[in-house]
């Protein structure tokens, strides 16, 4: 599904990602952990097409295509979804309007007709229930005045409705209490399928108790310094990142 080879990225003259290699197959769940400022969000942004970064080397192939040359909205329509670490408030644009606009752009992209109004309502209402949200959220401006937890839930609501193929969750669990975490995890788990892959950026092993990853990667100083199975997260929780950075420095 996604193949990242030797990816190097700068912001201005400053190298941020320094040779990332990552293979993600359909149906897999990959967790990315690592200290603050190590480049996790940068990687998420590069995959979703945010401006302001310079790719200085390497390739990213998504479903056989060069992801890096697609406009952000094309990536989204092709099934790449980023749940933002800091979702953006859009005053004056209602949640439901954005959802409908997004869903219809995806359908149009695939040569399908616009979604029927009744079917759309039925769909979003079922997803709103799944995420234990109040229907009123649909009619409020996107993220405006939402609490941190509400914003994160709203990201997962969008994801559940748009049904992407590659879901990138950037610290969706940060700031969530245990009840909200369970709801979000349930939302994610309900989307698991052999055709859908997940990249979950997180600082907390606890998320992985609810969504079990196939692989855990540690990103430090712009490189993946260690990869392993779910048990690596437990080890990191116990020991922190210091031992990895030390071995990295020694190497």
């Amino acid at each position: 599904m996604l193949s990242i080879k030797n990816l190097t990225v700068n912001v201005g003259d400053k190298p941020i990602l320094k040779g990332i290699n990552l293979e993600i197959k359909a149906g897999e769940i990959h967790a990315i952990m690592g200290p603050n400022g190590s480049g996790k969000s940068t990687l998420s942004h590069i995959l979703s097409g945010k401006a302001g970064y310079t790719v200085t080397g390497g390739t990213v192939t998504y479903q056989g295509k060069n992801l890096l040359e697609m406009a952000p909205e094309i990536r989204a329509r092709e099934g790449v979804f980023l749940a933002f670490q800091y979702p953006v408030e859009i005053p004056g644009v209602s949640n439901i309007y954005l959802l409908k606009a997004a869903l219809n752009s995806i359908r149009k992209h695939h040569g399908q007709p616009e979604v029927d109004a009744m079917d759309f309502l039925t769909l979003i209402k079922s997803k709103v229930r799944l995420l234990e949200m109040d229907e009123k959220f649909l009619y409020r401006a996107v993220n405006e005045g939402f609490s941190g937890g509400e914003k994160k839930r709203n990201e997962i609501l969008q994801m559940a409705i748009l049904e992407p193929k590659l879901c990138i969750l950037d610290e969706t669990d940060s700031g969530l209490d245990i009840d909200a975490l369970k709801v979000v995890a349930e939302g994610v788990n309900s989307l698991r399928s052999p055709e859908r892959s997940f990249v979950m950026v997180t600082h907390y092993q606890r998320l992985l108790d609810y969504i079990k990853p196939d692989f855990v990667h540690v990103l430090a100083h712009g490189q993946i310094v260690k990869s392993g199975g779910a048990e690596l997260a437990l080890e990191l929780e116990e020991k922190g990142y210091g031992w990895l950075e030390d071995t990295q420095a020694a190497a």
């Binding site: 406009a71 989204a76 933002f84 954005l98 752009s105 748009l162």
Partner: peptide, 12 residues
């Protein structure tokens, strides 16, 4: 905000 909307399939 523009990027957020683009990431939700809306063209620029």
């Amino acid at each position: 905000s523009i990027f957020y909307l683009q990431s939700r399939c809306v063209d620029e």
